[in-house]
Amino acid sequence: MSTSAPPATAAAPGEGRRPRRSRLGRRVPPVVWFFLLVPLAVELFWVFWPALNSFWLSTTTWGGVGVAEPVGTANYERLLADPIFRTALWNNVLWVFGFGGLSVVGGLALAVALNQPRRFVGVYRTVIFLPMVISMAVTGLFWRIVYAPGGPVNNTLELVGLGHLQQQWLANPDTALGAVLVAAVWRQVGYIMVLYLAGLKGCDPSLEEAAAVDGANAWQRFWRVVMPQLAGVNTVIFAITVIDSLRTFDIVWVMTRGGPFNQSQLLSTYMFEQAFSYVNLGYASAIAVVIFALAILFIITYVARQARAEEDDL
């Protein structure tokens, strides 16, 4: 081993390290500790410490001034009986399936269609991806205009003879959530498409060729040969989608603020409203803890996957 080891490390005391290790410094110099500890301290202070605080706050009642009063599990009991919380929770479930399902179906279909060397494919990809660049807040504003009375959606309905469907999409409790969802999907599809395009690039073309020779049609080849190879991408997209869904805030806040009559409330918007409009800080923290509890499984899935990939790289 000594011949291939770099002189500097070979001279260091304590021989017999495996070559794989030789790329790592042996003793950690103080300045390197500084390199690590400064960023780590920033993240601990602004992320982990506040997060821990929320858990504690969720067991108190607090109006922002004076001392937070411990109330045990009262906030959580209140949540169980709160019809708006139940609406928000249910809307979040719908959101995960609607937002996730539609963007995955759309993104995957477009990725498969655009994963070929044809003319203009690059242009099509860019157009589909473009909304992803626009912020959720601006997306919300764009679509408020699109849904407005006399706006293009209502006008188009009139034009194709469906005039009776015209309505105030965002002011109607039955349509508000769906209308916001369409806007969010419009923005997300391009992102999912890009992830799937990368996944498709990593698929082995000879497997598909072989299946084609065996007489499998395009549909069978896609589901039986290509899809299994996308398993890894699917896991990541699934985790990202759920985490994103639970985080969704901007677009709903801009378009409806959770209204009308709380019918488009998500957990995130309801939490924000309780915290910053009504200053029920303990109650809002309890909602935040619920969001955390729902997200943590998917966070672990994602991180564990990355950790395993990291190990394979070594």
Binding site: P50, N53, I291
Partner: peptide, 16 residues
């Protein structure tokens, strides 16, 4: 550190 970035921001808002 990565997991910290994935936390739902809602759990940080009030303490922040």
């Amino acid at each position: 550190m990565l997991a910290g970035n994935l936390l739902p921001p809602q759990i940080l808002l009030i303490p922040v």
